[in-house]
Structure formats: structure tokens, C-alpha cells
Write a protein that binds this DNA or RNA. Structure first.
Length: 273
DNA sequence: AGCACA
């Protein structure tokens, strides 16, 4: 297919989003199903390094819903964009997220006392905006449905099962046998994770800040090995370590000058205390 | 590919 004669026109008229504008710390998310909840958006981003807050907006155009997610830095916004853009948000409909840098930063600062996310409803005059929610404590765990989206950013192969009738059998083999399975390389599942591919200026605080968002996170230990730091993160349960590993695999820390995080199960569990 | 602490 050759170039359209119109190319020159919309290049001039509608410039593409500027992915390099370092001012922008807010992402614009579209491609959402119209029954999406603000909580789902929050769960999608809450573990991403540098995440600040998000808002869900009913545009008033039909049932279209869009969302904005604000980060503490442009860099972390970009990292989340790259990790989540194109992810199938709803496996049933094949609904894929489209994420770009927002044209302008979210002006809405987080007010003390307001929840971690905000809903703006322009569908009609029924609803006022600015209602914030708190799902029974900010530490509440994610429902497992939203989990798959994060890990699905590289491979959607897992979706083969979706739509099937899972769990009807009751106590079937649904219990994950991660103790004898190796999700990473050939190492055994372990409640301690090994972090590599860290940048030289990665700090313990930076990693802690990311990891402390994960349920079950216990202790972090960093070792400077000749030049490149590595880290060990201990979790209460293997499942919790697994989840953190899946979600954080390949994510770019702000400190990183190389690729994203490389995470494996540690070869041995962190010593107790 | 790089896995420490006791």
C-alpha cells in the first residue's frame, strides 16, 4: 500500500503525540470497556514504579470511558506506558489498552483525605464529579481477575483458558503447583526473589518503595557485587513473590541505565532474621 | 549472566 496523498495534510494538521516531552507525567488511557471501574484502573497502575494517582473519566460521548494516570516523573510514566500499552484489558472481548502520553499533565493534585483514584462523570447531569473511593483500606489485595493483565504484557498465551468454565469442579487441580514448577529459568519457586540488571545507581530505597506496594513483602537486601548491584527481596509466601516477580519483570526503574529489571526466584530463601 | 545473609 503506497502512501496516501493525504499524509502531508494530517502531518501538518494533527501532529502525533510527543513521546519525548519530559514535562508530561500523565498517561492517557483509552480502549477501555465501558463497564470499567476506577478501581481496576488503580489496580492496573498501583504497583508501577513512580505511580501517583489516576482518574477515570466518562467522556459523555456514548459510553466511552478514558482514564488518566499520573506519575512522579516522566520516566516512570513512560515505563508504565511501555509495560502496559496494548495489553488485553478484557480477555473476553479482546479489548486492548491504548496508552499514550497525555497532552497535558493532570492538574488534579491528590487531596489529603481523598482516595487514590477519582471518577469524573460527564455522561449527563446525573452525577457530580470528584467522588473518590476507598476500597476498604488502601492495602486491600487485588482481586485475581485484574492480575492477569499485568503479566500479559509480553505474552497473551495464557488467554487460551479464558472463557472456559474454571472453578466449577470445585477442588480440582486449581491449586497452583508452583513449588515444583519453575517460572524462571531452571530455578525453583522461592519466596525470596533475586533482582539483577540493576543500574549502578539503583538504591535500596528505590527498590523498597516499589516492593513495599506488594502484599507479603518482607525484607530487601542489596549487594554491590564488584560494580553492578543485585538485590534479594523476601516475601511471606511464594505466591506473593511470584506475583511481584510477574508484575515487575522487565520494568524500568528510574535509576536504570540498562534494560528493565530481571527477576528470578532466589536459589535459597533469605535467612530468617 | 550476574545469587548473599547464616
Amino acid at each position: 500500500m503506497a502512501q496516501q496523498p493525504y499524509d502531508r495534510y494530517y502531518k501538518a494538521a494533527a501532529p502525533l503525540p510527543d513521546y519525548t516531552n519530559p514535562e508530561i507525567k500523565t498517561l492517557f488511557i483509552s480502549g477501555l470497556p465501558d463497564d470499567v471501574k476506577a478501581r481496576e484502573i488503580h489496580n492496573l497502575f498501583r504497583h508501577r514504579p513512580g505511580f501517583d494517582a489516576c482518574q477515570l473519566k466518562y467522556t459523555g460521548r456514548g459510553n466511552q470511558v478514558v482514564a488518566f494516570a499520573t506519575f512522579f516523573s516522566h520516566q516512570s510514566a513512560i515505563a508504565a506506558l511501555r509495560a502496559l500499552n496494548g495489553v488485553k484489558f478484557d480477555p473476553d472481548t479482546g479489548c486492548a489498552l491504548h496508552i499514550e502520553l497525555a497532552r497535558t499533565n493532570s492538574w488534579r493534585k491528590r487531596k489529603p483525605g481523598s482516595g487514590p483514584y477519582v471518577v469524573i462523570d460527564n455522561r449527563d447531569r446525573n452525577n457530580a464529579q470528584g467522588s473518590s473511593s476507598d476500597d476498604g483500606g488502601s492495602e486491600s489485595d487485588d482481586p485475581s481477575e485484574t492480575d492477569k493483565q499485568d503479566s500479559g504484557d509480553e505474552d497473551d498465551v495464557v488467554n487460551a483458558k479464558s472463557g472456559g468454565s474454571a472453578g466449577v469442579d470445585g477442588a480440582e487441580a486449581a491449586v497452583s503447583n508452583q513449588e515444583d514448577k519453575a517460572t524462571e529459568g531452571n530455578t525453583q519457586a522461592c519466596s525470596t526473589l533475586f533482582f539483577a540488571n540493576l543500574g549502578p545507581k539503583c538504591t535500596e530505597d528505590e527498590l523498597k518503595q516499589v516492593l513495599s506496594q506488594y502484599p507479603g513483602f518482607n525484607v530487601l537486601k542489596m549487594r554491590g557485587r564488584g560494580g553492578l548491584p543485585v538485590a534479594f527481596a523476601d516475601f511471606e509466601e511464594i505466591e506473593q513473590a511470584t506475583k511481584a516477580m510477574e508484575e515487575l519483570q522487565d520494568t524500568q526503574l528510574e535509576s536504570s541505565d540498562r534494560g528493565g529489571l530481571h527477576i528470578e526466584y532466589a536459589r535459597s530463601k533469605m535467612r530468617k532474621r
